[in-house]
């Protein structure tokens, strides 16, 4: 009896440390953020009781919030969609046999392996009007006569940030898809070739359905990562000018640590959490169900 009991309890003992760690470092902070969002919080960080969702109404009524929400959606969709398409294409290329494939694969990892703050600083350095390498290069090549201000409007700056976001996200997608591609049995393609399918038909009817699980994983993770991404925007613009390049995460950081409004920052955090939860779970349910149907 004792041995049997031990055997049954054993797996729980093994997973207990990670469950406890997760509870302390993930569940507790989430709980604390929700608590803060519901409470009046002084600038010095003291909680002063439930304040009837005032943090939420204040945040939602702030004219900047709509703009920030729009930016966040544009940022997430643009980065995730474009990097998924480009990453997928790159994976298809890298899945072929060619000379130097290993070196190319190693190079693709570089943007992923570098710290985001460094990446963003380098992009800032490239596009800077006064000492940027892009202007210097174009001037040297004689393509432009005068230094161009690449970031003359907030929208332009935001577009550069999105470009940087795409650049650092592609490797992750590429490697997810590549792992999916490599697990596909080549006999499928041989059979399709025998049946007379062309390249596009094979891509649509074989490759895409077979890498869907990998694509789902990479897309869900990317939605979460990109939505919550802080370093690129913070390093490049800090959300300036006037919230025009802010996303929810940089916005709430400013609220908490520049404006001292921790309660409102927590409210923004909760709103972001709920949006993410809905988006990610909808996407997962949709794709997994579709996978079951076929």
């Amino acid at each position: 009896m004792n041995k049997k009991f031990y055997r049954q309890i054993e797996p729980y003992i093994w997973i207990a440390p990670s469950v406890i760690l997760m509870a302390i470092f993930i569940v507790l902070p989430i709980f604390s953020v929700f608590e803060r969002a519901m409470n009046k919080v002084t600038r010095a960080g003291k909680l002063q009781g439930f304040n009837n969702f005032e943090n939420f109404t204040k945040v939602v009524n702030d004219p900047a919030f709509g703009l920030v929400l729009k930016n966040t959606i544009v940022w997430t969709i643009a980065v995730v969609v474009i990097s998924t398409v480009l990453g997928f294409c790159l994976a298809l290329v890298l899945n072929n046999n060619f000379k130097g494939r290993k070196i190319v694969r190693a190079i693709v990892v570089f943007p992923w392996a570098t710290t985001l703050v460094i990446q963003a600083s380098v992009w800032n350095f490239i596009i800077n009007t006064d000492y940027g390498t892009l202007n210097t290069l174009l001037l040297k090549l004689g393509i432009i006569k005068q230094a161009v201000n690449w970031t003359s409007t907030p929208e332009a700056y935001f577009a550069w940030e999105i470009a940087c976001g795409i650049f650092v996200t592609i490797p992750f997608v590429t490697f997810c898809v590549l792992s999916g591609l490599q697990s596909i049995d080549t006999s499928y393609y041989e059979a399709a070739t025998v049946d007379g399918a062309n390249y596009w038909q094979k891509l649509r009817s074989l490759t895409l359905p077979l890498v869907r699980p990998s694509l789902t994983v990479s897309t869900v993770l990317n939605i979460i990562y990109v939505f919550n991404s802080f370093p690129i925007i913070w390093t490049m613009t800090k959300g300036d000018p006037a919230n025009h390049t802010d996303t929810l995460v940089t916005y709430l950081y400013k609220l908490a640590f520049y404006n001292g409004k921790q309660g409102e920052a927590a409210a923004v955090s909760v709103i972001g959490f709920i949006i993410l939860l809905i988006c990610a779970s909808t996407y997962m349910i949709y794709t997994l169900r579709k996978g079951d149907d076929t």
Partner: peptide
């Protein structure tokens, strides 16, 4: 049992940290 332990450990940690009254 595990879930109860978890909730208890959370409550134990949470209580000291964030009292709404000083």
């Amino acid at each position: 049992l595990l879930a109860v332990c978890l909730v208890l450990s959370m409550a134990a940690c949470g209580g000291g940290n964030n009292n709404s009254t000083p």
